[in-house]
Amino acid sequence: MPRASGRILVVDDNKVIRQLIRVNLELEGFEVVTAGDGAECLEVVHQVRPDVVTLDVVMPRLDGLRTAARLRADPRTRDLPIAIVSASTQYEVDAGFAVGVDAFLSKPFEPAELIGLVRQLAERGARSEPGTGAAADSLPRVRGLAGESETPAQA
């Protein structure tokens, strides 16, 4: 499979998890920038201009769901692909989709799942026109993407 490209902003308060995600994505050719919580994400997102953001849910200062809502409310980041990578409850999944999160990946995850999801989101973002909202229509359906129902065993 060809090497991926794109800049990914990984947001997680757990340094070990940030490094795990970073290493796996860098091995696939992605450029990775990290942030320790949602507040830091909002401080750097306009500077680094990522192609995809991955967010943990439970973080200090600003959690992942509120961060996602703020990214969706900002015209500059409204169409930015967002994936929640967290040990999420069904309530958090529902709340995430309600604020516009594109995908969920449950911890613990297989590195191949992470890479596949980020690759699809990055490709979708590259094909979409900023501000059109057309990106979601072109995203292939994979486990955990918006609009896909999951059984409790998968959630």
Rank of each mutant, 00 (worst) to 15 (best):
P60C: 07
E148C: 00
T34P: 00
E26C: 03
E31C: 05
A68E: 06
G147K: 03
V52A: 09
S128I: 01
I82G: 06
L20H: 03
V85R: 11
G144V: 03
E110F: 01
D13E: 13
F30H: 12
G133W: 01
L62P: 05
A155Q: 11
E113M: 06
Q90R: 15
V101L: 09
E92P: 12
V93A: 14
A153D: 12
F104H: 07
Y91C: 00
V57E: 11
A136H: 13
Q47G: 04
V10P: 03
E92T: 07
C41E: 07
V45L: 01
G6E: 00
R72H: 06
S128N: 09
E40T: 11
V57R: 13
D94L: 15
G125P: 12
P108F: 12
V10M: 05
R143A: 05
L105Q: 07
P111W: 05
E113V: 02
P2L: 01
M1H: 04
A153V: 00
R18P: 03
R3Q: 11
A155Y: 07
L139R: 04
A69W: 05
R61I: 01
E150D: 05
L42M: 14
V23Y: 14
G38P: 12
S5W: 06
M59P: 08
A35Q: 13
Q90C: 02
R127M: 15
T34Y: 04
Q47M: 03
E110K: 08
V57S: 14
T77P: 11
I8W: 03
C41R: 05
G64Q: 10
G29W: 08
V45Y: 00
A135K: 06
A35M: 03
D56C: 09
L27Q: 14
D12S: 12
R143I: 02
K15F: 11
R143V: 04
A155F: 01
A134D: 15
R119I: 09
E129K: 15
A112E: 15
L105C: 04
V48H: 04
A35W: 06
G116V: 01
D13S: 11
I84A: 06
S149T: 10
E148A: 03
D56Q: 05
T151P: 00
S86M: 06
D137L: 14
V101G: 09
Q120W: 01
R61G: 01
